[in-house]
Amino acid sequence: MRRIFCVAQFTFRELIRSNMLYIWFLSVVVFSALAFLLSILSFGEVQKIFMDLGLVGMEFSGLLVLILSLAVTYNTEFDQKAIYLQLAKPITRGEYLLGRVFGFFSIISLVIIGMGLFIAGLVTLVGGGQVPVLFVYSTLFLLIEMFVLTTLGLTFQMIGTSMVGVVLYTMFTIFLGHGMGQVDWLLNQKLAPTVKTMLRIVHFLLPNLEAFNLKDRIYDPNLVLGWTQWQEVLLYAFAYSFVVFLIGWINLEKREFM
């Protein structure tokens, strides 16, 4: 456990010093500028604009940090072969991978929570309102989504043979993962059995990122988020991440370092 923590801490420090937090800073500046511009144009909807834009900005900056971190560390670890010296140490490849997952997730969480607090501050101080509990829930769901995507991205890193490939696979999965609502809709339509089978396979293999999307529903009065819904989301995220992690671990174990 201690070794996992060491890898996570090392990864976190590496990413922080790779100027990943500039993304957070940039997102805050862009978000603030957009939010103020739109609040001038709208009438009495300032809080809503802050929160809607803020949640999109949080997700965008989290994804950007993930993609850039994958690219930066692929270059260091695999292209420049920094991983050799680490794997020659008394650490299992599973511990190494789990440490990387936690290191990545720590910095992504820092960016998302940092931005969430900034938005909450704006809503309270500038908008003069209260932050709805669903905004907090939406942020937590986003963090869960980021954990799934971090595990997936790092698994692609263990499987991939180039930095571009890893980045493209991850972006492609994010794109399709957010389109699972449309896949669900298609599955309810009259389609050829082969097409339906293929859609079911896609639905089964790719992460259903819509399951973590509360952004569009924080003002939905009918939305009830009880313990059962939390359990479902957490269980799905944990099970999916676990399976993906296992695939990444097995690949790293089998990987030959030429």
Binding site: R13, E14, S18, A82, Y84, L85, A88, P90
Partner: peptide, 17 residues
């Protein structure tokens, strides 16, 4: 592995440390 040390050819480290 705890009793082995390894130095690769032209070792590369994270430049941020």
């Amino acid at each position: 592995r705890n009793q082995i040390g390894y130095l690769s050819e032209l070792p590369y480290f994270s430049r941020q440390h």
